[in-house]
Simulated scan of single mutants.
Amino acid sequence: MSDRNDRDALALHLVGVASMLACTVRDDGPDAAAQILTDLTSEERDALPVVLAAMIPVDVPTLDLLAWHTHPETGPAQRLAKVRRLDRKTRRRPLAECGSHAAFNRHKARNEPPCEACEIAERVYQRTRKRASRKKAG
């Protein structure tokens, strides 16, 4: 039982480290992030990817997760609001960006091979949908 408590304590500690690492990568760059990693023990470095993976929301399109990198002036929330806003001229919703379930469906409707970002987004979408269905079933 003590081993489980130790793992739980390590995971809880690493949630804070992971949050700090994410902010450092976005704000200060890879060199500052590397410094954080060098300060960790080998056990912490081995467990950190699992904690980081657990913190990623799987129902968010990949491009939205990386929006801070591709569009540093606007974050995911601003980009999502922009996509959901109706185009004032056409009164239609703008096309969903690649890296989403809707864009994957658009590729298929046009008989195009989906791009890598859309394939990943579709896998995440289907996995999330199946998990929710299984959870609902009991």
Rank of each mutant, 00 (worst) to 15 (best):
W68E: 12
W68P: 02
W68G: 05
T70C: 02
T70M: 09
H71N: 12
P72H: 01
P72K: 06
E73Y: 03
E73W: 07
E73D: 06
T74H: 08
G75R: 02
G75T: 08
G75F: 00
G75A: 03
P76Q: 02
A77T: 04
A77M: 08
A77I: 11
A77N: 06
Q78H: 08
Q78P: 06
L80W: 11
K82P: 00
V83H: 08
R84K: 13
R85H: 10
L86M: 13
L86D: 13
L86F: 10
D87I: 04
R88Q: 12
R88G: 11
K89I: 15
K89E: 15
T90R: 00
R91S: 14
R91F: 12
R92K: 04
R93C: 09
P94C: 11
P94L: 12
L95E: 13
L95M: 13
A96W: 15
A96S: 13
A96K: 07
E97T: 05
C98E: 10
G99N: 02
G99A: 05
S100F: 03
S100D: 06
S100G: 02
H101G: 02
H101T: 06
H107E: 03
H107P: 00
K108L: 15
K108V: 15
K108H: 07
A109W: 09
A109K: 09
A109F: 10
A109G: 06
A109E: 14
R110M: 14
N111G: 08
N111T: 12
E112K: 11
E112C: 08
P113I: 14
P113Q: 12
P114S: 02
P114F: 07
P114H: 05
C115D: 03
E116R: 05
E116N: 00
A117E: 10
E119L: 14
A121P: 00
E122D: 03
R123M: 05
V124P: 00
V124H: 06
Y125A: 13
R127K: 10
R127G: 07
R129H: 06
R129K: 11
